[in-house]
Design a protein around this nucleic acid. Structure first.
Lengths: 219, 219
DNA sequence: GTCGAAATACGGCACCTGCCGTATGTCGCG
DNA sequence: CGCGACATACGGCAGGTGCCGTATTTCGAC
């Protein structure tokens, strides 16, 4: 018998934390030892009393996306990280795993998967929700035909594109973004077009919605 | 002894529904009889088998804001409606109650409030989360100084404006919104302008960001 | 029955956008 | 030393946007 796995529950919604604790309490050998409502609290817990498992909502305030996973992984290398979020973007799933997450569940998924995921992580496996399992491919596998390629690609944005994305998401026009960055409006517009093409976005509204969805800070 | 209160749980996140069911299962005389993941399912349930209480996430797809509450109230006048959402905008709280909700909880609030709220609603009371209780003022109370005025102001959107807001937030143009609603593009544009003025928004991107912030469904 | 709010509808104007090109300089990697 | 990725910069074009008007109809409140 393995001894009980200690768990930290991190979600900004208290009622969701409470629900998760209830769900976890029905599982054998699982013990919720702490909870956190924001990114800072998660980091503090990872430092002071790392648990066996962290269940992490990527949509929390103070959790600046994927980088946050890498930060935790650095602080507490032995703690398992199970991402639990509403974000179903394939590239986010891929990036989360690459950043060091051990599992990825979506809030829309079958609740029964929570138990499966905890078991898998305890066995040092990686667990992905059924609905997004297609999103992470084996890097060794040779390139596939076509349709899936786009979904599988990490689609990395350049530094400038990231800046423009952040500004555009706050409602700034190309001109205003250009002023902030000290470049030509036309250049800013080009960066904007490039990132939109990369991300398959087609309007300012979609940029804002996307930015919010992936957890970018929005004014 | 009152007999068990039947409850419908409506939230688009399966894992949140599951957690809520677990939490409710610890309460005496409460029985979850159905759940719904989108607005249509809620309306169908309200028609076919209304329960004593509906716990409703206002951020669900197909739940076009406050009007949805009024719709349910019309279909099932005797069913209690407890709003449970991430939206803490005072005007939304106010509007929800005016539209016929019997209670309003925030996902950030103390989970213990869930039990209090259910009890209050069962006793035909209205229950508001501690954190937003200030938001609904007694209409009889005379106007307060100033600073709070703006926050307290309902800034009510009309039904059409609410619909346009929801569509615009999903990235639809005025023309596309007009097609969905079967009205002139120019009329749709006017509704859009009106709601933007009311809400002090100045671009499509701001509409999208605002809609996300208040918990409206975003494509 | 009157009054106001809401919904309907139209038009002009400056600006921005999204998409299509092209082109140049820099910098790092093999 | 190239080659490719990145950043820089410019322009045309069609369409959408945000802001400014005006006007009619419908409908509930008083």
């Amino acid at each position: 018998m393995s001894k009980a796995m200690t768990v930290i529950v991190a979600d900004d919604h208290a009622i969701v934390r409470e629900g998760l604790k209830m769900l976890l309490s029905t599982m054998a050998d699982v013990s919720v030892v702490a909870e956190a409502a924001d990114g800072e609290a998660v980091l503090a817990l990872a430092r002071s009393e790392p648990a066996g498992l962290l269940i992490l909502d990527l949509g929390m305030p103070g959790v600046a996306g994927i980088q946050f996973i890498a930060d935790i992984r650095e602080i507490a290398p032995r703690m398992k990280i199970l991402v639990l979020t509403a974000n179903v973007e394939p590239r986010t799933v891929r990036a989360a795993i690459e950043a060091g997450a051990n599992g990825y569940l979506t809030k829309n998924g079958d609740p029964a998967e929570l138990a499966d995921a905890v078991d898998a992580l305890r066995a040092n496996d990686i667990y992905l929700a059924q609905s997004i399992r297609f999103a992470v491919s084996d890097p060794a596998r040779q390139t596939l035909p076509s349709a899936t390629d786009e979904a599988l690609s990490p689609i990395p944005l350049t530094r400038r594109e990231m800046q423009i994305l952040s500004l555009a998401a706050q409602g700034l026009t190309a001109r205003e973004s250009a002023e902030r960055l000290g470049i030509s409006p036309l250049t800013a517009r080009k960066h904007r077009e490039n990132l939109m093409r990369k991300l398959s976005l087609h309007s300012a509204a979609e940029i804002a919605a996307y930015a919010v969805r992936i957890g970018l800070p929005i004014g």
